[in-house]
């Protein structure tokens, strides 16, 4: 099937020139645009959107950082500069609905943009994927790539505690024919990967160990083969975690979208 799908990534500017307004804007985010590892997630997600026939577009080079790292680092001025710019752009295009694969972008646009004039329906890709599955639009292929594999889900703080999204990612994973296991800290008690609050962009303070290592040890405890994440920063940190614990070979880290794309045979 996938061979017959031609993958397209419509740009908002082009659609606007044709007088079209897509149903949903895919907000890619900085990590999804620039980070080599997370670009794969962006690609996987876009392939799913294509396959399902979602009417979407991206902002391309017009997109700019939401300002989340600046805000969490305490630089409110820079955050609002970014926010207002993005809002101006998106309001100009008349955007109503946004989907994003980054919980930080999701949180910022959903919670912090409205007060600055940016009111949109914002959905994280985990919820979006869950809806597609519920609607029967995404069907996993039968071969069962994941059969007998243990998958654990690492809660992203900005999805979980920040926005109370705990079940959507798990529901997506349940569709894979795998064994879903929970780590000691999960859902509301989920342990951070260590990257939130702009920690991604600086060295950790003095301590006993890295947070990512602590978290990966919890995944090892439950004998997970795959740690699934739904956030670009968790992806980086958990991948570091496999190295810090010497488990690079045994434990793989994937984003939900990659797992779904793989199960759909979209690679």
């Amino acid at each position: 099937m996938s061979e017959t799908t031609t993958f397209k990534v419509p740009l908002m500017a082009d659609l606007a020139a044709e007088g079209k307004n897509p149903e949903v804007l895919f907000w890619v985010g900085c990590a999804g645009s620039f980070d080599d590892r997370y670009k794969k997630v962006t690609v996987a997600f876009v392939k799913i959107l294509n396959k399902v026939g979602i009417d979407f577009a991206v902002l391309g080079t017009e997109e700019a950082c939401t300002g989340d790292p600046a805000k969490r680092a305490g630089n409110e001025f820079l955050f609002q500069m970014q926010a207002v710019q993005n809002i101006e752009l998106m309001n100009g295009y008349g955007i109503k609905k946004i989907v994003t694969a980054c919980p930080h972008c999701f949180n910022t646009i959903k919670n912090e943009y409205p007060q600055l004039g940016g009111e949109y329906e914002v959905i994280h890709h985990s919820t979006f994927l869950q809806q597609l599955i519920n609607d029967g639009k995404v069907k996993m292929k039968e071969s069962g790539d994941f059969k007998g594999k243990k998958i654990t889900y690492h809660d992203s703080c900005y999805l979980g505690r920040a926005n109370d999204i705990y079940e959507a990612p798990r529901d997506v994973l349940k569709m894979l024919d795998a064994d879903l296991v929970e780590m000691k800290n999960c859902r509301t008690k989920g342990l951070c990967c260590g990257a939130g609050g702009a920690q991604m962009f600086k060295d950790a303070e003095k301590g006993k160990k890295e947070v990512s290592q602590e978290r990966m040890e919890q995944a090892i405890e439950v004998k997970a083969d795959i740690v699934s994440v739904a956030c670009p920063f968790c992806m980086v940190m958990m991948t570091d975690g496999t190295k810090q614990t010497g488990k690079e070979k045994e434990i793989k880290v994937y984003d939900l979208a990659e797992l779904v794309a793989q199960a759909e045979g979209l690679n």
């Binding site: 990534v9 740009l11 999804g32 670009k39 950082c65 991604m200």
Partner: peptide, 17 residues
């Protein structure tokens, strides 16, 4: 972007799709 990439490269991933 928080990293030192050129803004004009932001959409390069599209080629991978």
């Amino acid at each position: 972007a928080p990293w030192q990439f050129s803004p004009s490269d932001r959409a390069n991933w599209i080629q991978d799709v």
